[in-house]
């Protein structure tokens, strides 16, 4: 399968700290790829290189190449805003804007120039449906997004990300702040979305990776130890460190 994201010899430094070491990784289109590994091994860092959210952290230095859809995203004529429109992100803590449910979803499309009320209405409905939230909120679109439960807020954030029609969705431990039922809903949602989107998710929960992903990447100390199809990685890992980790001997 053609890789939509191709990472080559990627090194990232936070000032003097070497956070990503010589990462080579291909991420296939329209699949769920899970990043697993102990805390502090660089999963979030790598995820943030994909939509250049690391640009905002001062004194960050990047070497190597990240190509998305064939384009070098750290190249000269890349507009970060245009990149982030194609590569959406959902964060660990639900972070709805202190605005109405409607305005949360419409925020992104409005940024990118959609003004017509009927277009926006359509996008809001479609995005909320995609995020399996429409039935719960369709009568309360004018209510503050903060009146929703944590799980609903996170699905709202997913809907908000989908509303700008990205190709890729990055999720950084998007369920770790949620209760088991909300977590399950979001996992089901991810299953639905993978036919349309390329999803890259960070999780510290191996069972989640096993349940929802097609490809799993195991990180340790800023290095990619092993990347394989999820079935293979969890049943017959090729690296001893992967085996130690998935069998619960550390991390």
């Amino acid at each position: 399968m053609e890789a939509i994201i191709q990472i080559e010899k990627l090194n990232l430094y936070y000032d003097t700290y070497h956070a990503l070491k010589n990462v080579d990784l291909d991420i296939p289109e329209k699949t769920v790829t899970a990043f697993i590994g102990p805390s502090g091994c660089g999963k979030s860092t790598l995820l943030r290189t994909l939509n250049r959210m690391n640009d905002m952290i001062p004194a960050t230095r990047i070497e190597g190449s990240v190509r998305i859809g064939g384009t070098e995203i750290y190249g000269e004529d890349v507009h970060v805003e245009a990149l982030r429109k194609q590569v959406g992100m959902v964060f660990q803590q639900p972070n709805p804007f202190p605005k109405s449910i409607y305005d949360n979803i419409a925020y992104g499309p409005r940024l990118h120039g959609i003004k017509s009320k009927s277009d926006l209405d359509g996008i809001v409905e479609q995005s909320l449906k995609q995020a399996a939230l429409w039935e719960e909120v369709k009568d309360y679109l004018k209510r503050s997004a903060l009146s929703l439960s944590g799980g609903q807020q996170q699905r709202l954030c997913i809907a908000r990300a989908l509303a700008v029609q990205p190709d890729i969705l990055l999720m950084d431990e998007a369920t770790s702040a949620l209760d088991p039922i909300s977590t399950l809903k979001i996992e089901e949602l991810v299953q639905e979305l993978k036919s349309t989107y390329t999803i890259v998710m960070v999780t510290h929960n191996m069972h989640q990776a096993a349940r929802v992903s097609g490809q799993t990447v195991f990180f340790l100390n800023g290095e990619v130890v092993e990347s394989a199809s999820t079935d293979v990685l969890f049943s017959t890992p090729s690296d001893a460190r992967t085996e130690d980790y998935i069998s619960g001997r550390f991390g």
Partner: peptide, 23 residues
């Protein structure tokens, strides 16, 4: 986190300042 949410949608600094932070 609110700023990050907006940046991740492709907002510029000015848009974040004016439409997220200021309100």
């Amino acid at each position: 986190t609110l700023r990050h949410g907006a940046y991740a949608l492709g907002a510029t600094r000015f848009e974040v300042a004016l439409k997220i932070v200021l309100p």
